[in-house]
Each structure stands twice: as structure tokens, then as C-alpha cells.
Design a protein around this nucleic acid. Structure first.
Lengths: 164, 164
DNA sequence: GCATGGTTGTATGCACTGCATACTAAGTGT
DNA sequence: ACACTTAGTATGCAGTGCATACAACCATGC
């Protein structure tokens, strides 16, 4: 290997790790939020593993079980998921036999959502896995930090109705 | 309207808003993180408006401008975006004429990324919009709270390499 | 009672994201 | 030379988000 080659390699190494410049990107709150959410969701999916439920699927099942017969749109509103996205999501859960749509006797426009026995069984396992996932996150923080983080994150939701 | 109808309506109203039960879902950190990220990203896209750049597209452009000639994979590693996703993302930015791929003279496997003049111009506007977006978030917090939030969010990224 | 307007769900299409897989090109080490 | 590794590419599938259009249904005013 010539000296020229050595110095070329050194340049590459320098560029690939040492001399990388975030150029202020890491001063943006949105950046940190997106990175954190990505890491948490990856850990979530890995923890759920074979149960194969995303955060949103889980949230819908959770709320349906907690509010039997609730309308699809109510869930969507509660979770800030629009109607079209809710459709796909509920279609998927229904196809997997985890919940059922039933026409509401009071307002026929509505479809009441009910968890099936299979859905309830699955969610029991899911809740256990979520405990592990949440525990892994809690280990990163003190109790006070957890409460602070939750409080600050909750405040960011004000952007949803803020000025639009 | 009969009394029966009145009370039926009351039930519906009760169910649609008052009697909704989060059943502990809102005790999960992952839930609050997802909601917050959703709200922030919606505000981000609305603020960018006609500039039409997502958070990730912006992050890539930002880092390419801050590190001219950086390899695609380095950006992906820095942002926790895998190679396949980076491909689609860079394809899109290249198709829009915002950056260019060039074969690296030092390591021909690599493609150096360079922002075009149009890309640089666009990013100037983007940075202004982002200032507005970040300012809107900062109004929700004190300076100390902002620093705390950033610090705690950064800690969550430890999940990415944690035990898998 | 009927027309009108708003609400809920449905269907479709497009774009972004994430990941698995497989393949090519190129560099590394023996 | 050879196997191993790395970087980029291409394809496919699933999840998500949103715009749009449409159908069914409810509430309201006339």
C-alpha cells in the first residue's frame, strides 16, 4: 500500500465517522421527537414480536375493549386518526378476527365496534408484552422524570387544534 | 319526539363524548410519545405547506448541505433510516432536483450526495418555516422545560441499540 | 312529509415510511 | 485467486396519512 492510498483511506474514515456535522439539526425539538418515537416504536414492535400488532392497532383494540360498542369515529377522534385511516385499520383488525363491526341500533350510520374472544385473548398477551416494553423505558428514567416527560409530551398535543 | 327517542339520543351523546374511557392507555409513555409526534409532524407539514418536504426529507437535505459529498449510507446511519428507505428517499429528492448522486473517487461503491443550487435555495426557505414551527412549540414550554424535554427524548434513543 | 345539510362510514388513490430479501459492484484480507 | 464484507440498488409488502368522492342515515326547517 502506497502512502497515497493510506492517506486516502484516512480521509474516508474521517468522513464516515469523525467529521460528520449535524449542522444544528440536533437543536430542533422535532428532530429529537421523531428519533425518540422511531426508537420506541422499533422496540415496541420487537417486543410484541409474533403478536404482530402496531402501536395504533393496539390502541384501537385497547379502547374498544375499554368501551364496548364504541363507534369507529369516536376511536378515531380520541386517537387523532382520520376516517380513511381508521377504515383500513379496522378492516385489518376485523379480517384478523380480533373485532367485529355491528350496526348501531340507535344511529344506523354508526358501526359499533366489539372485540371478539380472540381479540380479548390476544390483548391479554399484548398487555404483558407492553409491560416489558414500558419497563425497559422506565429504566431509563426516574419516577419524577417519567412524570415530567409525560406532562411535557401531553402539552405538545395542543399543536393539533392550535391555529388550524 | 317521544320520551323514548329523547333518552336514546341522550345515551348516544353520553357514549360519544362524556363516558369515553381511556382504560389506562394514557398511562403508557409510548402512547403519549406517538400522539405528540403525530401532532408535531402535522404542524410541521402544515407550516412547510407548499414547500412539500417531510421531516425526513428535510433532515437528509439538512445533513447533505452540512456535509457536502457525504455518502448515502452515512446519512442513513446518522438518522436511523435503513438502506432501502434511504434509496426511495434520495430517489425522490434527486427526482425533484434538490440533490445529486456522484460516484465517490475514493470508494466507487459509494455515492456522494451533493445539494443542487435549487436544493440550497429551497432549504433556505425551509429553515425559515422551521423557525416558525419550532417557535410555536417553544411557546408551550419554558427554556428549562425545553432543555429537559430534549434531554429526556435523547435518552430514549438508547432503546435502539439496547438489547438487540 | 319532504328537501336540505351535516354526520358516519366506505372506497379509492397517492405518497411516505419501514423492513425483508435478493442482487450487483466494489473494496478488504488471506 | 478467493471468500468476506460493505454500499448501493431493486422489488415487494404492510402501515400510515390524507384528499376526494360517494352512500347511508340523521336532524332540521319548511
Amino acid at each position: 500500500m502506497s502512502r497515497r492510498h493510506d492517506s486516502a483511506r484516512a480521509d474516508v474514515v474521517e468522513q464516515t465517522s469523525a467529521r460528520f456535522d449535524f449542522a444544528g439539526l440536533d437543536l430542533l425539538l422535532g428532530y429529537h421527537l421523531r428519533r425518540a418515537q422511531g426508537a420506541v416504536h422499533r422496540d415496541y414492535l420487537a417486543t410484541l414480536g409474533d403478536l404482530k400488532l402496531t402501536q395504533k392497532h393496539t390502541a384501537v383494540m385497547w379502547l374498544v375493549i375499554g368501551n364496548p360498542g364504541v363507534a369507529q369515529g369516536i376511536i378515531g377522534t380520541a386517537l387523532s386518526i382520520d376516517r380513511a385511516t381508521m377504515m383500513v385499520l379496522v378492516n385489518r383488525l376485523e379480517a384478523r378476527g380480533l373485532l367485529q363491526r355491528r350496526r348501531s341500533p340507535l344511529d344506523a350510520r354508526r358501526r359499533e365496534l366489539h372485540a371478539t374472544a380472540a381479540g380479548v385473548r390476544l390483548m391479554e398477551q399484548v398487555r404483558e408484552r407492553i409491560s416489558q416494553h414500558e419497563a425497559r423505558m422506565k429504566r431509563l428514567f426516574s419516577g419524577a422524570e417519567m412524570r415530567t416527560l409525560e406532562r411535557l409530551l401531553r402539552r405538545l398535543q395542543k399543536l393539533d387544534g392550535g391555529s388550524g
